[in-house]
Simulated assay, not measured.
Amino acid sequence: MMSGTIEIVAALIRDPAGRVLLVRKRGTTAFMQPGGKRDSGEDDVTALAREIDEELGCRLVPDSIQRLGEFDAVSANEPGFRVRASLYEIDVTGHIAPQAEIEAMVWVDPAAPADLPLAPLTRDHVLPLASQRRAAGAV
């Protein structure tokens, strides 16, 4: 079995009610953070800005970017792989709508994400972190 680690950047985006935006790529079942792999030579912020534009058709607000850390989980869509995500909380501007490979998007309460199929990274790291930060009044 092949194995390896896929390096990605991922975005934690909230609405005014504190809900977290999740997306699902075409042909997959798991909801996850917007984001993706860096292109050659890209830093995290450049990659994140490109992915947000490609996936959601909106722009990130440069002075809103907060690095939340690096998280490791089993890949949702690539069997035998793990993902290592550099996670950033960001604000976006412009109309948010699924673009490119994104088939669906949903806003969820990070403390109670309903019974959606979630990517391991989102389920085990991002949503617990988002609900802790909200409880601590960090929104």
Rank of each mutant, 00 (worst) to 15 (best):
M1Y: 01
M2L: 13
S3R: 12
I6F: 02
E7Q: 13
I8L: 10
A10W: 00
L12S: 00
L12V: 12
I13K: 05
I13G: 01
R14I: 01
R14S: 05
D15M: 00
P16L: 05
P16N: 08
P16C: 01
A17I: 01
R19A: 03
R19D: 08
L21S: 00
L21F: 03
L22N: 05
V23I: 11
V23A: 05
K25R: 15
T28R: 15
T28A: 13
T28F: 14
T29K: 13
T29D: 14
A30M: 12
A30G: 09
F31E: 05
F31Q: 10
M32P: 00
M32L: 13
M32Q: 14
M32V: 10
Q33R: 08
P34K: 06
G35W: 03
G35D: 04
G35S: 02
K37W: 08
S40H: 12
D43M: 05
T46N: 07
T46F: 01
A47N: 08
A49E: 11
A49F: 00
R50Q: 00
E51I: 00
E51L: 13
D53S: 08
E55K: 08
E55D: 06
G57C: 03
C58G: 05
L60G: 03
P62H: 03
P62T: 05
D63S: 11
D63N: 14
D63I: 04
I65Y: 01
I65T: 02
Q66Y: 09
Q66L: 11
R67N: 12
F71A: 10
F71R: 04
V74L: 14
S75C: 07
A76W: 11
A76N: 11
P79T: 10
G80S: 05
G80I: 02
R82L: 06
R82T: 12
V83S: 06
R84E: 11
L87A: 13
L87R: 01
Y88M: 12
I90G: 03
H95S: 14
H95T: 15
I96D: 02
P98F: 02
A100N: 15
E101Q: 15
E101W: 13
I102E: 05
I102D: 04
E103F: 08
E103A: 15
A104D: 15
M105V: 06
V108F: 10
D109R: 08
D109V: 07
P110T: 02
A114W: 11
D115H: 13
D115A: 12
L116N: 06
L116Y: 11
P117K: 09
R123K: 14
D124P: 00
D124R: 12
D124Y: 04
H125L: 05
V126C: 09
L127M: 02
P128H: 06
P128D: 07
P128V: 03
L129V: 06
A130Q: 04
A130R: 00
Q132W: 07
R134W: 06
R134F: 02
A135R: 13
A135G: 15
G137D: 07
G137A: 05
A138Q: 15
A138D: 15
A138S: 11
